[in-house]
Write a protein that binds this DNA or RNA. Structure first.
Lengths: 342, 342
DNA sequence: ACAATCTATGGTATCGGTACCATATACCAA
DNA sequence: TTGGTATATGGTACCGATACCATAGATTGT
């Protein structure tokens, strides 16, 4: 015997007016006499009435809600992006629904369907793999605004915001080469994801420019996770000869796995081996950050994506945009010249 | 000239049946002949129809949505809680809306109002201060299920899940005392928050038991932030005499600020000064975590909160529950006996 | 053979808020 | 006085899905 929440008609009855009059008072639209306004306001206060935005959304065909679908908010890279998206959206009275896919295509599909059913006004989405194209086209078919974040999808004409993976990987690899490294291992993320490919591309380009032969044995793949990094590091340092003198982690969590594996192998960083990472990791080492990284600007990525999306939603923009934000190498203490050269 | 999404009536028209028949096909309710079912399914496929859950929610008076309101998902403590909540909710086909208050009462109010208007089925909420009681009663007045997380509010009869702050602070302080520390500084969070009070209470109790006089100069307050920790540490070590030999951070972000301040002051941890923290901080120092902490189990906190909430929503439970989860001291490397005693 | 039951389908009202159109009074200008 | 406009309020339909009741043919039991 739960008491039902009061509706606009309950307020109207109590105030002795029609429902539409209450609506006018609430929204300050049309004409209302001071006296009626007063009575209505008293009735609203007495009943503790709040309007039901479900019915408003149903009428207006808009929910003022956008979805942000990322892989894993446990990673500070994504939480920072999230804050960027939220801050911009809140300024525009848009609410953000946050979803984690854990890089699973099935979870992505589930969320996309759910969110479409709920009449979400727009999507900011991180594809989990090339297969995400199905979900992307599902959204576009329904003419719902969509911005892709971080990872490219081939052959879809859609807005995208991302960091410059190729350039970042290139610069970081060059940095290692300039320190004297020749055997640099690349610990990549999943093979079908564009950021993986592009980071490998930048890595290869830097090697080629320096006339260093590319050894495919030095490139391995796994998830963008600590467990993946650890596994790859243990394998690489146990089985590949000659042993690499520097390790390139394709993201921050992979770097964590690598560092932990190296510790277990009793290899010191940077004295015995150098490590660099794509993406920064706050508090990677206290009191001072330790990892040399190429950092994207995640907050700005989120902001830009939100701005693009809002442009679409408002209808102010109709041409597709591809935004690539610059990255920055931050040199810290995880690298040294290779051991043999010291 | 945006094309409108197809409705159930469009499907019905195309299939040559009534809307209600389409509804029956979709929901597998009532009777439908194989032939009709076929026609309807073809029509659904052709139009790419998906049902509008807004109207369903309006009818059913339920949205299958719960809100999780925390202070800041940048802090891994809250993201981990979030994952616990999400995992349980997803198992029950509930969707989670995540909101950050940044510890600001105004943001909390804004979210609570918005979420109530959207007919959210339940709330899991971290109060920002004692003033949050207004928002809490607003929710309870509307008979919407609510579980308070992490921080107690006095004089409200409401479900709550939290870690054992008093006991945790007590144990951590005892640990320091056993190492020989007598002057232990407490870097607390905001003064009106229950976890602050309780951690101070545990700290004081341990001191009293050891017959160590409580020096109010050794207790300072600020936000649960890195900036707060830094500021408090610089003040404490510059102005208070005799200087404390051990520092107690009331949360992980305060600990970060402290460690960075100590680095700036060229004090080594633990050789020159010991540091402990409430709440763990993943990757606080790579490759191996460094801080000695008392850890709550954030994932479990989130799970428990979600379970309590679901019990309320389903109506299976009507009495209020207060759950206090145990905490655990994790000794690592940030503490040593006080310098003078070495 | 006839009622009872099963199977299949549709009409209408409803959830809560608001757009649209209608109505009615007051006031001013010509 | 007439007409036009500003002010104030209400009735009805609609957004999309579905519960409830109604209808009607097919099937079964006695």
């Amino acid at each position: 015997m739960k008491k039902k929440r009061p509706t606009i008609r309950d307020v109207a009855k109590l105030a002795g007016v029609a429902a539409i009059t209450v609506s006018r008072v609430i929204n300050n639209s049309g004409y209302t006499s001071d006296e009626t306004r007063d009575r209505v306001e008293r009735a609203i206060a007495e009943l503790n009435y709040i309007p039901n935005s479900l019915s408003q959304s149903l009428r207006f065909q808009t929910t003022n809600t956008v979805a942000l679908i990322v892989s894993d908010i446990t990673n500070p890279f994504w939480t920072t992006i999230t804050r960027g998206v939220e801050d911009v959206c809140n300024d525009h009275d848009l609410h953000v629904i946050l979803c984690n896919t854990d890089e699973k295509e099935a979870k992505l599909s589930k969320y996309v369907n759910m969110l479409l059913q709920r009449q979400t006004d727009g999507f900011i989405l991180v594809p989990t793999s090339a297969a995400s194209i199905n979900n992307v086209t599902t959204i576009l078919q329904k003419h719902v605004p969509l911005v892709i974040l971080d990872r490219q999808l081939p052959q879809v004409d859609v807005d995208i915001v991302r960091g410059d993976s190729v350039e970042g990987a290139y610069q970081l690899t060059r940095y290692l080469i300039e320190l004297g490294h020749q055997r640099i291992a690349m610990f990549s993320g999943p093979i079908e994801i564009s950021t993986s490919e592009q980071r490998i591309e930048g890595y290869k380009r830097a090697l080629q420019e320096a006339d260093i032969a590319i050894d495919d044995e030095l490139i391995t793949f796994s998830g963008y996770t600590e467990a993946g990094g650890r596994k790859m590091a243990l394998h690489m340092l146990g089985n590949v000869q000659p042993t690499p003198t520097a390790l390139f982690a394709a993201n921050n969590f992979i770097a964590v796995g690598i560092l932990r594996a190296l510790y277990q192998l009793e290899l010191r960083v940077p004295q015995d081996i150098s490590v660099v990472s794509f993406d920064d990791l706050p508090f990677d080492t206290l009191p001072e950050p330790f990892l040399t990284v190429v950092a994207q600007a995640p907050y700005e990525l989120g902001m830009k994506a939100a701005e693009l999306l809002i442009g679409r939603i408002s209808g102010e923009r109709t041409h597709t945009e591809e935004i690539t934000l610059p990255v920055e190498v931050i040199v810290r203490k995880s690298c040294a010249p290779p051991k043999s050269q010291i």
